[in-house]
């Protein structure tokens, strides 16, 4: 028994080290899909930038992993163990070139500046990219395939996750050095004084008083449904008319079991109508390239025990998976369209 306990204790002690050694694997599992296999960016912003790696201290990286950026795509990885977070941070450090300067040590020192002067400087130098209220750019990360006016999404400086993670020293260093490989330039090179930069830091820090919080979890149903007073066939036809009436184009009609059973053996009482609005798809893909889970738009008409129902996903519910406030707004609109179609087809 003693040996078993001893073994368990030894294994428990060895576990964090084993996990810690797996930074590359953890990065591949949790980060690479968005930030690229080597930190070059994608849906997420690039991480392998020398200026980023030298100005971002480990505390910034840890807090960013833990808290994410509410409403700005980067999720909060709260289920990762501390050792796993450390392993990922360690792997991020491996992106630095061998001759790169050492990463900044975490600092909680406050940078003192004049918020009002900082406000004026921010409006003049920063707002064009970061938004008048520090709300950041549109879309996601960097883009390899989608047309956009900026090559990289400027971060939301008024984001609660950013403000909690970034120290004043890090913000100041970024303003002073700029970030090579992005549109972020050195404001020292642009002629601002160190005090000007301190003032901007103070203004950015003042966003904490008004940073938008992520709304509480939606109490939205996962599906939208309505009972139809028409037959299944009539409801399907109504559905098509209603979709066209909302400026959608019909793609096809098929049975739910299509592709699973030979034709003639499929359940004829489960009919899917697929439709699409290309402008809407374009808009959604520009906001977040991962939105395929919503596509194409679809409503299913089902007859069971003599009752005809129409069912669809609830875009508002699915949108919560993406942590993308801009997408949430588009999904609100999409949900209204779905509800309109369901109502028209069934009443």
């Amino acid at each position: 028994m003693f040996k078993v306990i001893l073994l368990a204790v030894m294994l428990a002690g060895a576990l964090p080290a084993a996990v810690a050694a797996d930074g590359a694997q953890l990065y591949g599992q949790h980060c690479a899909a968005c930030h690229g296999l080597h930190g070059e960016g994608g849906v997420g912003v690039p991480l392998a930038l020398p200026d980023f790696l030298s100005t971002a201290d480990d505390d910034f990286l840890r807090k960013t992993l833990r808290n994410g950026r509410p409403g700005r795509v980067m999720p909060a990885f709260r289920s990762l163990a501390d050792a796993e977070v450390e392993a990922i941070v360690g792997h991020l450090r491996s992106f630095a070139k061998p001759d790169a300067p050492a990463a900044r040590a975490p600092s909680s020192a406050r940078v003192h500046g004049d918020v009002e002067k900082g406000r004026a400087l921010f409006a003049q130098h920063c707002a064009a990219c970061h938004g008048a209220n520090g709300e950041g750019g549109h879309g996601t990360g960097v883009t390899f395939s989608r047309p956009r006016d900026l090559p990289i999404m400027p971060p939301a400086l008024n984001n609660a996750g950013f403000l909690a993670a970034a120290s004043d020293a890090m913000i100041k260093a970024t303003l002073m050095r700029g970030r090579e490989g992005t549109p972020m330039i050195s404001y020292l090179d642009q002629g601002l004084s160190e005090q000007d930069i301190n003032n901007i830091v103070a203004f950015v820090r003042s966003f904490e008083a008004s940073a938008p919080a992520q709304p509480p979890p939606l109490d939205e149903p996962m599906i939208l449904e309505a009972e139809s007073s028409y037959s299944l066939e009539e409801t399907v036809e109504n559905m098509k008319r209603a979709a066209i009436g909302k400026n959608f184009r019909l793609i096809r009609e098929q049975r739910l079991e299509h592709g699973f059973f030979p034709e003639g053996e499929e359940n004829a009482k489960q009919v899917i109508v697929y439709f699409c609005n290309f402008n809407f798809i374009n808009q959604a893909l520009s906001l977040d390239p991962r939105v395929g889970l919503f596509l194409p738009c679809r409503v299913t008409v089902v007859e069971q025990d003599g009752v005809v129902k129409v069912l669809s996903i609830n875009p508002k519910h699915l949108s919560a998976l993406y942590n993308n406030r801009e997408l949430d707004a588009a999904c609100d609109e999409m949900t209204e369209l779905y509800e309109g179609i369901l109502e028209e087809a069934t009443l």
Binding site: P70, A76, F77, A160, E208, Q214, P217, N323
Partner: peptide
Amino acid sequence: ATALLCLASIAGAEELFM
């Protein structure tokens, strides 16, 4: 900042497989 983050929802954040 901590209070704002406490309000932040994590629902869904890790429900996307990529």
